[in-house]
Design a protein around this nucleic acid. Structure first.
Ligand SMILES: NC(=O)c1ccc[n+]([C@@H]2O[C@H](COP(=O)([O-])OP(=O)(O)OC[C@H]3O[C@@H](n4cnc5c(N)ncnc54)[C@H](O)[C@@H]3O)[C@@H](O)[C@H]2O)c1
Ligand SMILES: NC(=O)c1ccc[n+]([C@@H]2O[C@H](COP(=O)([O-])OP(=O)(O)OC[C@H]3O[C@@H](n4cnc5c(N)ncnc54)[C@H](O)[C@@H]3O)[C@@H](O)[C@H]2O)c1
Lengths: 207, 207
DNA sequence: TTTAACTTGTGAATGAATTCACAAGCGCAT
DNA sequence: ATGCGCTTGTGAATTCATTCACAAGTTAAA
């Protein structure tokens, strides 16, 4: 398949969110224009994004809401459930473990891991905190697909290497550090300090 | 000033991070090539990014680490302190309030706000949780520049409007929803579910 | 059946971001 | 002083993303 830009994938996620809203409200069709207004983009952009994957609309009418949302779920890989592990049961790891929004969208958090004996053995709203020492064993047994990395920055790269060796191919990183990974592994980094700095820049450089 | 792309600003943040590392290790000069390797980009990209703001390097030698990091701090608006308020003292709001990484980079969290009487009056590692009802008054008195929005999705847009009316011009939003704001207000949204969906897409569509 | 009002899907045009490529400047050794 | 090795700064070229613009398809009403 032709390479799909990151920005396109993000917009697809956004479209799916609006479609779910629409579905809830019992509406059955939607035009690229309505979809665009919701997402702060243009109708041409919406159609172009979808055109990479096929033609799902009806000319003159728009898109069937349930059909399009189904297609988007397939495209995004959300027709299946994904198993997620959280590495580092600290403040941010715990907040994420307890967050319901993920499970609702098909991501089940199966366990958290830590190296602090005080934390190992507890649970976070039903999610067990396990010893990081057993992670290779667990990955083999439970085959989680996605790891969320919430350890201190200096532990992040070694931990990533360890996860990759153990067979993880997708990592969501919260440590504020640039990580190296082999090409078959996808890493996304959420860097909140960087976002704040973007705001600082905007405040400083507006006229 | 010419318009600066968001991607450029993000890279500037990244460069600054590496420079601080370098500074710590006592190194005094760095080339665009070294900076690029650290940041996973190219030396031409580094030089182009910097060229929007001036010429800070010495041909044949590279950049002075302390000078360049100082310049970047100025450009990003980090030579001054920013006052930050957190709206929604829930799980993610609390994690952010307690996070040391922000203060270290010049963002002081002055208060959190909530509408839950159980939470109002408590503190989160020294940060007071105040009644949301008093926010207009406090904004006028304390003039915080940045608001972090960590309320439930359905409360996010009305709360944004309220913050904007009260005089806030920069908002970091964690609610998974598309927000509308007037052009003089900068909004950045961190949408973790969207990031996970990006990973799901990558896992599904790799060959 | 014909017409009018809409909306999609997509090449072509435009615009934005990145990469190339090289002249010019600097430091150091000779 | 000269030459060599290295690195910047920046127009030009290229690649990538978005927007335009319109033929073609659909519905509904007359
Ligand atoms: N808290 C926030 O709001 C926030 C915001 C942005 C980024 N971050 C980043 O997220 C990461 C975690 O932050 P936090 O505030 O949750 O810190 P924290 O100290 O509360 O949590 C880190 C956890 O990781 C565990 N840990 C450390 N080394 C480990 C190892 N080798 N193996 C397994 N577990 C290990 C610790 O025991 C601790 O429980 C940091 O990189 C931080 O910079 C946090
Ligand atoms: N927890 C996470 O890991 C996580 C991850 C991604 C996104 N988010 C998003 O962040 C937001 C907060 O999530 P959370 O898990 O912290 O939820 P939470 O319920 O723990 O926290 C929300 C807080 O906002 C307060 N609140 C609600 N309405 C308010 C109002 N009108 N004024 C002031 N305060 C109000 C509540 O009292 C509560 O304390 C949500 O939009 C959620 O989707 C959370």
């Amino acid at each position: 398949m032709k390479h799909i830009a990151d920005s396109t994938v993000r917009r697809l996620s956004a479209y799916l969110r609006f479609l779910e809203d629409f579905e809830h409200r019992g509406l059955t069709t939607i035009s690229s224009d309505e979809l665009a207004k919701q997402g702060g983009t243009t109708s041409a952009q919406v159609r172009k994004d979808l055109s990479f994957f096929g033609s799902f609309g009806k000319r003159g009418l728009g898109y069937s809401v349930p059909e399009l949302s189904g297609r988007l779920r397939e495209i995004l890989g959300l027709s299946q459930h994904w198993r997620v592990i959280i590495i580092g049961a600290g403040k941010i790891g715990a907040a994420l473990a307890q967050y319901r929004g993920f499970r609702q969208r098909g991501f089940s958090i199966v366990a958290a891991y830590d190296n602090n004996p005080e934390k190992i053995g507890r649970t976070l709203e039903g999610i067990p905190v396990r010893d990081i020492a057993q992670i290779e064993h667990d990955i083999q047994r439970e085959a989680p697909e996605i790891a969320v990395l919430t350890v201190p920055a200096e532990a992040a790269q070694p931990m990533l290497d360890r996860l990759v060796r153990a067979g993880i191919h997708a990592i969501l990183n919260f440590a504020p550090t640039q990580l190296q990974a082999p090409p078959e592994v996808t890493v996304k980094t959420v860097n909140m300090a960087m976002e704040l700095e973007g705001l600082s820049f905007a405040l400083t450089n507006r006229e």
